[in-house]
Design a protein around this nucleic acid. Sequence first.
DNA 1: GAGAACTATTTGCACAAGCAGGTAAGCCGC
DNA 2: GCGGCTTACCTGCTTGTGCAAATAGTTCTC
Lengths: 155, 155
Amino acid sequence: MGIQDDAAEIRAGGWRTLAALHGLIDSALEKALQAEYRLSVVEYTVLEALSRQDGWHMRMQQLARAAALSSSATTRLVSRLEERGLLSRYLCADDRRGIYTELTPQGRELLAAARPLHDATLEATLTEAADLPELAPLVRALYELEPAPAAPAKA
Amino acid sequence: MGIQDDAAEIRAGGWRTLAALHGLIDSALEKALQAEYRLSVVEYTVLEALSRQDGWHMRMQQLARAAALSSSATTRLVSRLEERGLLSRYLCADDRRGIYTELTPQGRELLAAARPLHDATLEATLTEAADLPELAPLVRALYELEPAPAAPAKA
DNA sequence: GAGAACTATTTGCACAAGCAGGTAAGCCGC
DNA sequence: GCGGCTTACCTGCTTGTGCAAATAGTTCTC
């Protein structure tokens, strides 16, 4: 034992830290969004992902990947949101197996309403995490990630 | 809009990256551990947490915090593991409300068997993630976290 | 252009999670 | 040492998830 075990231990520790921070943020967001807008984190994520495709549509599978969900979960998630009138499904003429989803005005509206709470909760949680010695380094690292290929500049 | 929105966008991007990496690792571990040892990631985490308290016990609530689970989920999780003979519950004389859990030899054994797969899967997934442009920076950051207060030296 | 092979989505089923409510045990003031 | 409050854990119920199988549509081969 030695070098290999050390590397494994570093990875394991990193993973524990990652999981801990993820759990903290996830549950904070879940509570906040659920309480105010009856939205789960995944649901918010899906709406948000759709809004980035503004004017566009997304296939179920793209959505599944974006939300890190199985396709069956995606089907039901989309159904829930559709029932609430937040998005709409429609077949695309191109490939009639494919189903596209699109935000409705209501969906866009709810997302706009929820975003500030989402951001505020995220900020609060990160700040809180920055005070915990075992999470602080990761929080710092998050802020220093590549400027994020956010909205790919329309260069 | 401007500075504030930028900060929010950075946080949101960081969160998306964090969530993506977490999801990737989590599902890889889940599949591997489930297939080989019929263990979920949370179950493994609990066994692992217990093993760190070697010779010791943990109360349900400590366990709940360690696994980022609700107490009801913890009850059932512990029940599952107990039924499989991997850990044992016992009342502690101190505070008869409290219930302590301890790894059984079988539990220790299964954990020892599963750990290499866990570590290997973790390594493979991190390596894979390091090839994705959007995840690579975070993976690098993980490796550079504080040397981790691993096993707090018995100083 | 008919059939095999593949892909996209949906549905049946089993399971694990959270919340709310229940019970047992400790703690406190009197 | 008896009520009242709190804490620690367990149980009923509802919901979301993944896997596997079913269905509908596309593509490729001959």
